[in-house]
Design a protein around this nucleic acid. Structure first.
Length: 224
DNA sequence: ATGACGATTTACT
DNA sequence: GTAAATCGTCATA
């Protein structure tokens, strides 16, 4: 208790509708404490709101409820972490109340603490690419620039070491995964850009709804 | 039991 | 710009 810890976002921050939470999360700080005590942190700069039962892009469209998406019914403040494309994890912040399975996808954060650890986490994916012994290859792993560390939903999960074991945990109380309030870096409304969500081409009339929120001009977003 | 499909990322033409 | 990687999950049978 030496120095003053930033305030953790309280329950009533999360128990609002997902659009409100998606916008309010911009500028707040995602924190992940590793088992050895290392603190990883980054400021949220891009989010997407998913509106649940009526939303064709949402995993809970039409009230679909399975083992995979069960945590979307846990109510505001819990996580929904899912596995996709056979290799990636994405993290949502569940919003509203338990009877409304809505959530906010974290799409990008601006790294602030333990950036080198994040870089190491991101690099730990190179596989034996079959091509052995080609002596004339360029450097197999270039350094990942900061702007490419957490600029996407799966990238930030990899950088923060968030996988399915972090599904369904309570951000309002958990010691190793939570979100801090950052009043000083909260972005003014004028800097918040709105656009259609990414990667939901299957969602019919919901494809073009303005439910993606990001900071204009921030170089850490997934797409400008 | 089987098959189609991703709320993505990366590398390559 | 296109394509490959890669597998848990879910709907259908």
């Amino acid at each position: 208790m030496s120095d003053k810890a930033l305030a953790r976002l309280p329950r009533n921050f999360y128990t609002r509708d997902s659009v409100t939470v998606a916008k309010a999360l911009l500028g707040q700080q995602l924190v992940r404490v590793l088992d050895d005590g290392t603190r990883l942190a980054g400021i949220i700069v891009e989010t997407e709101a998913y509106l649940g039962k009526p939303d064709k892009a949402a995993h809970t469209f039409n009230g679909r409820r399975t083992d995979r998406n069960a945590s979307m019914w846990l109510g505001g403040g819990f996580t929904y972490v899912y596995f996709t494309y056979g290799m990636h994890f994405c993290m949502n912040v569940v919003a509203s109340q338990s009877e409304h399975p809505v959530a906010v996808l974290l799409r990008a954060v601006e790294p602030t603490e333990s950036i080198e650890i994040m870089r190491r986490h991101r690099l730990a994916r190179s596989k034996a690419k079959g091509r052995s012994k080609s002596a004339t290859v360029q450097s197999p792993e270039k350094t990942i620039p900061d702007t490419n560390l957490c600029s996407g939903p799966a990238k930030l999960c990899q950088a923060f070491a968030i996988d399915r074991t972090w599904d369904g945990i309570d951000l309002a109380t958990h010691e190793q995964l939570f979100i801090e309030q950052r009043r000083k870096r909260t972005f003014p409304a004028a800097q918040i850009h709105v656009g259609p969500r990414v990667g939901v081409d299957y969602a019919g009339e919901w494809v073009d709804k303005p439910l993606r929120f990001y900071i204009r001009g921030n170089s850490h977003v997934s797409r400008p």
